[in-house]
Design a binder for these strands. Structure first.
Length: 268
DNA sequence: CTGTACCCCTGCGAGC
DNA sequence: TGCTCGCAGGGGTACA
C-alpha cells in the first residue's frame, strides 16, 4: 500500500519521463469514485498541456501544468503508474500519451485512488487538509501538534492533518524503532520521545525510498520492479513472531480500525 | 474532541 | 471445483 516512500519513488521515476513533455493523447475510463474530476472534463483540460513540475506532499502527487492548473493524484491502496507496456491492461483508469512517444498508464484495481484537476489559481481541498510533510516537519511543530491531542500515537501518525505521508506500515515501524507503544496518548509523549520518534520516522522513510519502497501485495515501481524495503520490516505483519530485539512474541491488535503490530515489552 | 461504524472496491484465502 | 464469506485498507463522512 503506497505511503510516502512508495509515492516518492513513483514521483522520481515518473518525473523523468513526464516533466517537460506535452500531453498529446488522453484516454480515460468510465466515471467512478476514482474521478473527482469527471473523466470527460479531465480529458479536455489535459490535452495539449505541458508538465512543468511533478511534486509530492504526503501521499499526494501533483503535476504543475503550463497553464497554471494542476493535476492531483492519490494512489489509494492499489494505484500504480507505469511506463508503456509494463502494465496489465485491466483496471486502467487513464493513459497519457506524451510528445516523446512514451505512454504513461495509471492503473488502480480497487479505485481507492483519486485524480483531481485543479483550475489555475484554484486549490485542492484535499491538499489543503494536509499537515506538513513527514520528511519536512521540524521537531517543534511535530511535538506541538502531538501535545494538543488525546488520541493514541498510532492514530496520530496516521492522521494526515497532523503529519502527511505516514501510513500503517511506517507508523508501526517508526513506533517500534522509537520504543513507543502505539496506544500511548499523543499528549503524554515527551519532547525527547518526540525527537526520537521523528528521527525514526525520517530514517525509516529515507531507507525505504532508497530501497524502492515496500511491496506487500500490489505495489510496483513505475519501471515494473518490486519494492525492496518489505524485507527490512521489523514488526509490520509479524504478529506472533519473535521481537527482533527481545524475542518477546509480537502483538497484533486493531487500533483505530487499523491492524497494529508492536512489542509489548520493548515499547512503552 | 474522540471513537466507532460505514462507504468506496476488488482479490484472496479459508471453509464448506 | 466452485461457492460464499470475511478481511485488508486510505480517506472521507455521519453520528453517538
Amino acid at each position: 500500500m503506497p505511503e510516502l516512500p512508495e509515492v516518492e519513488v513513483t514521483r522520481r521515476q515518473i518525473a523523468r519521463v513526464l516533466v517537460g513533455r506535452r500531453i498529446e493523447t488522453v484516454w480515460v475510463a468510465s466515471p467512478s469514485y476514482f474521478f473527482v474530476t469527471p473523466p470527460a472534463q479531465l480529458k479536455k483540460v489535459l490535452l495539449g498541456r505541458v508538465v512543468k513540475e511533478l511534486g509530492r506532499t504526503g501521499k499526494y502527487l501533483h503535476a504543475e501544468l503550463d497553464d497554471a492548473s494542476s493535476l492531483v493524484v492519490h494512489l489509494g491502496m492499489t494505484g500504480q503508474w507505469s511506463a508503456a507496456g509494463l502494465s496489465r491492461s485491466d483496471h486502467i483508469q487513464f493513459r497519457l500519451g506524451l510528445d516523446s512517444g512514451t505512454e504513461l498508464v495509471f492503473r488502480d484495481v480497487r479505485k481507492f485512488g483519486k485524480v483531481e484537476w485543479v483550475r489555475p489559481g484554484g486549490s485542492s481541498a484535499r491538499l489543503a487538509r494536509l499537515g506538513p510533510d513527514a520528511l519536512e516537519i521540524g521537531l517543534g511543530p511535530f511535538y506541538e501538534r502531538l501535545q494538543s491531542r488525546a488520541i493514541p500515537m498510532k492514530s496520530a501518525l496516521l492522521d494526515q492533518s497532523i503529519l502527511a505521508g505516514v501510513g500503517n506500515i511506517y507508523a508501526d515501524e517508526a513506533l517500534y524503532q522509537a520504543r513507543i507503544v502505539p496506544t500511548r496518548r499523543a499528549r503524554d509523549v515527551t519532547r525527547a520521545e518526540a525527537a526520537t520518534l521523528l528521527r525514526a520516522i525520517r530514517s525509516i522513510l529515507r531507507a525505504s525510498i532508497r530501497g524502492g519502497g515496500s511491496t506487500i501485495n500490489d505495489y510496483l515501481q513505475p519501471d515494473g520492479e518490486l519494492g525492496g524495503f518489505q524485507n527490512w520490516h521489523k514488526v509490520y505483519g509479524k504478529g506472533g513472531a519473535p521481537c527482533p530485539r527481545c524475542k518477546t512474541v509480537l502483538s497484533r491488535v486493531v487500533l483505530g480500525g487499523r491492524s497494529t503490530h508492536f512489542c509489548a515489552r520493548c515499547q512503552r
